[in-house]
Amino acid sequence: MSVTPFLVLSALLFSIGAIGVLVRRNAIVVFMCVELMLNASNLTFVAFARQHGNLDGQIAAFFVMVVAAAEVVVGLAIIMTIFRTRRSASVDDASLLKY
């Protein structure tokens, strides 16, 4: 079974996620797009693991999932706090940390 369709799907998902991060302002949506990119890379890992017939890629995918889960916890907490103080979830509004 060819690995190509998986890679094409993965690339599509990654591109959608990247474009979403760049063009959307809502922090929650940006966050979801980041998740999309992570899962696109997971798909690549798993596809290659399957092709090579060993578990290395699957283990890597597990690591990514664990990190993503932790990141979601911290990220959502930060977004919640920002929303409470500024009444906005727009990433462009939170631009105080600059020159």
């Binding site: 760049l22 990433v91 939170a94 631009s95 600059k98 020159y99």
Partner: peptide, 17 residues
Amino acid sequence: IRRWQTGFVRSYALSML
């Protein structure tokens, strides 16, 4: 160069990409 530090997360993301 300091001016590149705009504070906009999305512009950082673009430069990272």
